[in-house]
Design a binder for these strands. Structure first.
Lengths: 339, 339
DNA sequence: CTGAAAGCGCTTACAG
DNA sequence: CTGAAAGCGCTTACAG
């Protein structure tokens, strides 16, 4: 499959520097145990030979690796890219590499990456899981590898999780539409595969129930993508005369699809119908009207999750916990601030 | 730093199945060498014990790993996410894991990931390099590890590269504006750090030189981000009365920043000024007017690059080559198709 | 501060 | 088709 290793070994470095292999290893891993002069002799030998330590051998001998995995549902959702950036910054400052894998919304791919990071003896795993991932995680956790869940609130007490308050996302977006004076909200509520979606839906219901005179027209769909949002609006318009004054998409993609169909039907956004999304996904932002949505605080989620992971890996006194970040609205053209 | 391995070893599996460790290894790696009945006995033992092979030990003993690295300048540019998806699909069908790392537009980070994949004896590397990355790559290539460059046209003959014809991107976007009847193009031409940007600029110049009566107002900037695009337009408007009828951003972010400032100044887009970007980056798509741009064919770039990498790793007759994909325009609201 | 030696958990010829 | 043994390239006590 691949070429074999060709370069110099650690023992070549040792020979050249006139020391033992243990000393070279100490220069690499515990320089404080080695004298200045030896260090510089070894460093010179490393440079002269172009030595590159074999990370596999190192991890095997040391019983640990310097890698942390991040497995995200879908890298084309920019939320997860924000998470990755935050996690990477913290990981690097701790001397760890962050390796990212996208599970492409597919359980089998997610499972194979979780297993991969398990096989690779990763120092830990950040996982934004799909529904029903307990099974896949069990083995990883049993192997005493730290896991932090992202954007998924788990009942499990054997790991940390970092979430945005998705119920509040639903509540805030619906409240905003109501504050804008909207009274008949077409709710593109997606499907039940994703926990964040379920929670946002609960928040939307709470906001509507609080407000007399507001009606929610719930329109579920098979997926939560652009096409599903377009279909929801298209079918509603076909079945009824225009009978709603707002669309709330439980994802940004749903909302973007809705905007496109509204515009095709010459319905002014936001003049006649407000539209708001929910998950700050810039993959949904190519539409003719810029989309209002909720900030998901991905960067902070990534940073926080990596800190928890490091704590779990290093601090015997670590206690698992659940960190909840509050969402904020991000208002743009499709549903601006109430006047 | 991390917990040590706790789970069962391959020899535990062998004991339980009543075979030697070599046979267990063969079941894992070369099942065709083992009888059906032995395979199922070993598989049962693996399941019962919850055995997970140590990938580090495996890679060390076998002299190769099943990982391919992808190091991209910036994962928040959706082009690279497309590339990753394409590469992952091909990698998985070949039994390899794709591990993604973002270099955050930082030479040091890029170097550390290239070194990491070298240390990890990755089966190969896909790299979308920043300028001046030869130095960093040299060692990797010398170690006989396959590298394929993405979106970077290298003079080096010791590796493959897959690019979109960025000169043609510049040519097509400029031609489009001219076909729209635009005659004074403010060209947000960015800086010279990135080869794709340089090439697009050359294409823009070619298109303008071909067309009599078209004037290009070149406005370079320090970066190629949203803020730089906003600044370019703001400064032009401050120095002159509105004297251009189009803005061409050498990146989508530059174009998006331009749109925002134009709108702030009540300049209609595309009524008064057309705007077009160049790199299909949905991080730039949150603006009030949807952005016309060029398709960069990221998915195909990723697929093609991974295929070349596999060929280089497996086929002794592999010859390095350069694959060029042709760009296409993606026309949206900020500069629609000519009428 | 330094060196000799054992061992990490696999894979791979090789002999049977 | 199966087993015994050597070895992959490091790290880590341990003794000096």
């Amino acid at each position: 499959m691949s070429s074999t290793t060709a370069g110099p070994r650690l023992r070549d470095v040792a020979l050249r520097a006139g020391v033992s292999t243990g000393t070279v290893s100490n220069v690499l891993n515990h320089p404080q145990k080695v004298s200045e002069s030896t260090i510089s002799r070894v460093r010179d030998a490393i440079d002269e030979l172009g030595f590159v330590r074999d990370a596999n051998a190192s991890a095997l001998a040391a019983g640990r690796s310097r890698n942390v995995g991040l497995v995200a549902i879908d890298l084309s959702n920019s939320f997860f890219v924000d998470v990755a950036r935050g996690a990477q910054q913290v990981a690097r400052s701790a001397g760890l590499n962050l390796l990212v894998a996208g599970s492409e919304d597919d359980h089998a791919i997610q499972a194979s990456y979780v297993d991969y990071f398990d096989e690779a003896r990763a120092a830990g795993l950040l996982l934004a899981p799909m529904q029903d991932s307990e099974e896949q995680l069990r083995r990883f956790v049993e192997h005493r590898r730290p896991v932090v869940l992202l954007n998924y609130d788990s009942a499990a007490t054997d790991r940390c999780c970092v979430v945005v308050d998705n119920e509040q996302v639903g509540y805030l977006t619906a409240r905003h539409l109501i504050a804008r004076g909207r009274r008949r909200i077409l709710f593109a509520s997606g499907d039940t595969r994703f926990q964040p979606v379920q929670l946002r839906r609960a928040g939307v219901h709470r906001a509507v129930e609080e407000s007399a005179g507001v009606e929610l027209i719930e329109a579920p769909s098979e997926g939560v993508d652009w096409e599903a949002g377009a279909t929801v609006v298209r079918e509603r318009l076909a079945a009824h005369p225009l009978d709603f004054d707002a669309v709330l998409g439980v994802t940004d993609l749903l909302a973007a699809g809705a905007i496109a169909v509204l515009q095709d039907n010459d319905v002014a956004v936001p003049g006649r119908v407000d539209v708001i999304g929910s998950d700050h996904n810039n993959a949904a932002w190519g539409g003719a009207v810029s989309l209002s949505t909720a900030e998901m605080r991905g960067l902070e989620i990534g940073e926080t999750a990596m800190r928890l992971l490091l704590e779990e890996a290093n601090d015997p006194a670590h206690r698992h916990r659940r960190v909840v970040l509050e969402p904020r609205l991000l208002l743009r053209a499709s549903s601006p601030a109430p006047s």
